[in-house]
Amino acid sequence: MSITIEESTSTSRHEKSVQVTTVASRSLLLGLVFGAAFGFLLQKGGVAKYHVLIGQLLLADFTVVKVMLSAVVVGMLGIHLLHHFELVELHIKPTRIASNIFGGLLFGAGFALSAYCPGTGAAALGQGNLDSLAMIGGMIAGSFVFAEASGWISHRVDSIGDKGKLTLHDVLPLSRTLVVLGSAALLSLVLIVLELTTVR
């Protein structure tokens, strides 16, 4: 198998004289390091555990939502601040209402069946949950099945409610700063309510 190395997208921030291969392997190494940090945190956060993930979907254990919302609040403030100083580029995924809804519901059904999502499933494997291997096999098979249907879906489904890279501050008649701060405050409030009302 020939391994094609991805050309780093962060080249612009580096000396042009640096060899492309060096930049590419640096990108791969960074991916591995960031992945290891992500996996470490997911496991310590308990979200590689079957009963914590299913417990969230059964609305009994709110660990998953607490982890996610805390990450969103910190990341939202941090990344918009970095973007304000032109230190990072944003990567906003297009809003395609039909595909977002159907894909999300189907993903959710699969999430409940396997209990592991793509990131936490890899963490579950590292933790020693061997059933995650079946989920990983299913992910690879399902990705190929999607690729088989990708021409039809992009033609027929993605076009329904295709709004492009739409953000909340495009929709609301408020400035981006206000929307970011307001969203972070609202989500923090949700976290406080969860802390006060949930057992775990």
Binding site: L106, A109, S114, G138, S143
Partner: peptide, 9 residues
């Protein structure tokens, strides 16, 4: 778990 993985992907 396999079917779940397929649906998720």
């Amino acid at each position: 778990a396999f079917v779940g993985g397929g649906f998720m992907a």
